[in-house]
């Protein structure tokens, strides 16, 4: 006899995928309200709750309130296990300078209760959507801090990831830029992030809705949704907390000003800095 949970598995036809939150509790509340207005009940966060923004403890009650299921990001793993650095995967001294500032602030202001909660998050979540197997991870299925940019993630490499996971849909975040690619009967999604804008000169952030789509080869389609939020309020909080002016400029202008050296040329050329 099927358990009630199984019945729910069968019914699931849509889900919201939310990328890195980076302590942007204002955007998180707005994005989840947007998903709820659309009637989406299943919300997943792909990890990296802290970094960059103010008051890291504020995101947790919102996630719990909306019953968001969360995958552990590299940031969450580091904070949860009381590590010395974020293990973001940056290699340039300038990127690492800002990463260190941000990590120290977030670490000091995340309470022990939530550090333990972060430590115990799963590194992957698998579920069924319209009969298709969906695999959620933070960076890539094989490494939490692997950057999967559109211009550096070739089809043969994705095929290898699909073969290794056995999934029909793989979704990740970590880079900060959303993209998707259909590959034969598979769908790969980078859900983007909601912690900061997408380096496109607008202040909006975005999340991704995946939906059962029997007419598509992969059986699932993905739609990236942009959401405006009170970014001025977030910027004001960041100022009060003395966070770096570079971080605040990104929230207010939509252009990335730090942690740029990791971008491939094709993605970086689209930004201002």
């Amino acid at each position: 006899m099927a358990a009630p949970g199984d019945a729910k598995e069968r019914e699931r036809a849509r889900a919201a995928l939310i990328g890195g939150v980076y302590s942007n509790h204002v955007a998180l509340a707005e994005v989840l309200a947007d998903a709820r207005r659309r009637g989406i009940e299943e919300c997943y966060c792909l990890g990296d709750l802290g970094a960059f923004g103010p008051h890291p403890d504020r995101v947790f009650p919102i996630l719990l309130d909306y019953r968001v299921r969360v995958v552990q990001g590299n940031y969450d793993h580091s904070i949860g296990n009381r590590r010395d650095d974020c293990a973001c995967g940056y290699t340039d001294p300038r990127d690492n300078h800002f990463a260190r500032l941000s990590y120290r602030y977030t670490f000091d202001r995340t309470s022990d209760r939530w550090k333990d909660w972060l430590r115990d998050l799963p590194v992957r979540l698998d579920f069924s959507l319209g009969g298709k197997r969906v695999h959620l991870c933070h960076g890539s299925p094989r490494r939490t801090n692997e950057f999967l940019w559109e211009s550096t993630t070739p089809d043969p490499f994705l095929r290898k990831l699909f073969a290794a996971t056995g999934a029909d849909v793989i979704a990740c975040t970590h880079t900060g830029l959303h993209w998707q690619r259909e590959l034969e009967d598979k769908l790969f999604v980078n859900a983007g992030v909601i912690g900061r804008p997408e380096n496109d000169g607008t202040t909006e952030v975005g999340y991704t809705i995946i939906e059962a789509a029997p007419e598509r080869a992969a059986g699932v389609r993905a739609e990236h949704v942009r959401v405006a939020y009170d970014h001025a309020r977030l910027a004001a909080e960041m100022r009060e907390e003395n966070l770096p002016a570079e971080f605040i400029a990104t929230i207010e202008t939509g252009w990335w000003t730090s942690c740029l050296e990791i971008l491939p040329g094709k993605e970086r050329a689209r930004g201002r800095f």
Partner: peptide, 9 residues
């Protein structure tokens, strides 16, 4: 051979 092995770059 690289295509079959899923080479990334």
């Amino acid at each position: 051979e690289a295509e079959a092995l899923g080479v990334k770059e």
